[in-house]
């Protein structure tokens, strides 16, 4: 499982890291993103919606995203 530690980095950097990492996992695989920028709580779900990917969980700055496309 890919884990990205983007704590201390400001949006859009955590979202960019997520977009890069998701390309390297197979469909059905997951990426875990750690991000403490307040904007990430809104921008990670918005990215998943815009990109058609699945946000599995989002809590306390820990986001699990499954590649479905």
């Amino acid at each position: 499982m890919t884990v990205l530690d983007e704590r201390g980095r400001r949006c859009p950097l955590p979202v960019i890291a997520l977009a890069r990492a998701i390309k390297d996992v197979a469909v059905g695989g997951e990426v875990t993103l750690l991000a403490d920028d307040p904007a990430a709580a809104h921008d990670v779900p918005a990215w998943c919606r815009m990109r058609g990917q699945h946000l599995v969980t989002a809590e306390d700055g820990r986001f699990v995203v499954r590649r479905v496309l």
């Binding site: 949006c11 859009p12 979202v15 307040p38 904007a39 809104h42 921008d43 779900p45 918005a46 990215w47």
Partner: peptide, 17 residues
């Protein structure tokens, strides 16, 4: 404040860019 817009956040749309 370095906080994103609470309006965009409440709408669930992208706050950056």
């Amino acid at each position: 404040a370095l906080e994103p817009s609470h309006v965009l956040a409440a709408m669930g749309v992208l706050t950056h860019g």
